[in-house]
Design a binder for these strands. Structure first.
Lengths: 223, 223
DNA sequence: ATCCTTTTGTTGAAATTTCAACAGACTTTT
DNA sequence: AAAAGTCTGTTGAAATTTCAACAAAAGGAT
């Protein structure tokens, strides 16, 4: 477990918890670690919403597929980030999402019921953990709110520009890489891939941006 | 404050907190109550994200308006429900939403910093409050997730059907009233009002549903 | 009961998105 | 280094959505 301390310290869930305490707590919570190869399913739709997932290395995609087979990508989760926490905390019976490894991954799973019901040992860090979980959920809500703002735009162009603006804000720079290829970006923005390519081409022609595959550079000033 | 106990007891934020304790806590937290007439602004975009709002009577709409003046409706908040908690808990500097009263309303405001930083009196109920807040945020995330599922549908028809399905599930019945008129429903589903009316007409003709203004009855079996 | 206002449904034209299919560029594998 | 596979950009046609404008229906006020 110790080899993961470096990344776990960066995880918002464990803010303000000392290394030694963290090790004790993870034992107490019965944390388990699994590894997954690229494209493997980390969690699948319909399964019980029991576990919170924490990405220790690699990254995963949160996806949803409807009965016509249309994939939609909800979000991309990087190392040190948490996923599926809302379903586990809300004690939903089953999760409505599928989680796929983007690359070889190590994932930590924690049974959420161990977090929600204070353990018999009365870890003193438990209250801090719940507080951190609350902060994490608030941040997730903000992120979902951003995604709603993107999807609420009516045109492919506006969806794309809104997304790029949020990314620029996130990275604090007008030059950044996105974690999606074209098809994935289309599935994230919920638009047609070819239409998206056309729109990117137009923006390039208009001098609004430069882009090469996953790299983007915004050339219009975000005041 | 006592006259609001009946509704406050129904608020998820105060689960497992006894009446007497609740009164003490609300004082401790410096809760304030304001009243608003129909269509008045309860909170406006850009203002500091300091307060959590609780609807004591009436209902409010969470809206967002872009620079072209397109209104989008994020959600409808009924009595005993909470709003703006995510922005306050995540300590965002300003809120990106505007809250409008649907009808005459009484709203309780609590400065979130009083919740996040345990007060000097060390109320014992404080930990319970934070736990409840976490649960509430998890539930909100689920709701946002549902809205994302609606907006991720590509056609007006599918957005509408997905919304109606969630409503039927929420009310546990195929017959229910929605809290929106046509224009508001269009602003919630992020589609054109006239196109929405056409789609409702088609579904009626196909025998999929019956509807009259805000009342809907689903005639296809959700297995 | 009548007038005034708001809401809903309709329609046709314009704009946009989706779909399917393909070619060229780029990667990865052998 | 060649072959195979994946990703991106293009294109034209079909389907859908948006927009604007108006009429009918419903609700409120006097």
């Amino acid at each position: 477990m110790k080899k993961y301390l470096k990344i776990l310290r960066k995880c918002a869930l464990f803010h303000q918890i000392e290394d030694e305490d963290l090790i004790i707590m993870l034992n107490c919570l019965g944390a388990k670690i699994d590894v997954f190869d690229k494209k493997y399913t980390v969690m699948s739709e319909g399964k019980p919403a029991k576990y919170i997932g924490i990405v220790l290395s690699g990254s995963v995609q949160i996806t949803q597929t409807d009965y016509y087979g249309n994939r939609s990508i909800l979000s991309n989760i990087e190392a040190a980030e948490v996923f599926a926490e809302a379903f586990a905390c809300a004690e939903t019976h089953s999760i409505p999402i599928t989680v796929i490894a983007n690359e070889p991954c190590e994932i930590m799973f924690i049974d959420c019921s161990h977090i929600l019901r204070t353990c018999s040992n009365h870890c003193t860090f438990h209250q801090q953990l719940i507080f951190n979980l609350m902060k994490d959920l608030a941040d997730k809500t903000i992120l979902f709110h951003q995604k709603l703002e993107i999807l609420s735009k009516r045109s492919t162009r506006e969806k794309l520009l809104t997304y790029l603006m949020f990314q620029a804000k996130k990275f604090g720079s007008d030059s950044f890489d996105i974690p999606f290829d074209r098809q994935e970006l289309a599935d994230y923005l919920e638009v047609d891939r070819s239409g998206l390519s056309v729109e990117i081409g137009k923006l390039r022609q208009e001098g609004m941006l430069e882009s090469n595959r996953k790299h983007f550079e915004l050339l219009w000033t975000v005041k």
